[in-house]
Amino acid sequence: MTGSELVVQRGDTSIAVIDRGGDGPPVVLLHGLAGSSRELLPTADALADRFRVLLIDQRGHGRSTRRPADLSRMAFVNDVVAVIEHVGERVRLVGQSMGAHTAFLTAAARPDLVDRLVMLEGHVAGDDGPEGAEKIGQYFASWPVPFADEAAARSFLGDRPLTDAWVNDLEAVPDGLRPRFDADIMQATIAAVQEDRWTEWENLTVPTLAVFAENGMFTAEQKDELIRRRPGTRRADIPAASHDAHLDAFDRWIDVLQDGLR
Rank of each mutant, 00 (worst) to 15 (best):
T2E: 14
T2N: 13
Q9K: 10
T13N: 10
V17L: 14
I18W: 01
P25C: 01
L30H: 04
L33K: 00
R38T: 04
R38Q: 11
E39I: 07
L40N: 08
P42C: 08
A46T: 00
R50F: 04
R59Q: 06
R59N: 04
H61K: 00
G62S: 06
R63V: 00
T65K: 03
T65N: 02
F76E: 07
N78D: 15
N78F: 05
V80E: 05
V81W: 04
I84N: 03
V87I: 15
R90N: 08
V94D: 15
G95L: 06
Q96H: 15
M98K: 01
M98S: 10
H101S: 14
A103E: 09
L105G: 00
L105M: 12
D112M: 02
D115Y: 06
R116W: 11
L117M: 14
V118M: 09
L120V: 13
G122T: 08
G122Y: 04
H123F: 05
V124T: 05
D128V: 13
E131C: 01
E131Y: 01
A133S: 07
A133G: 05
K135R: 14
Q138A: 15
Y139H: 14
W143C: 06
D149R: 09
E150P: 04
S155K: 09
L162I: 06
D164E: 15
W166E: 07
V173W: 02
L177Q: 04
R178C: 08
I185V: 12
T189A: 06
I190H: 00
E195Q: 15
D196I: 07
R197F: 14
W201G: 12
L204P: 09
P207M: 10
A213P: 12
G216Y: 00
E225V: 03
G232R: 11
G232A: 09
P239E: 10
A240T: 01
D244H: 12
L247Y: 10
W253A: 07
I254V: 15
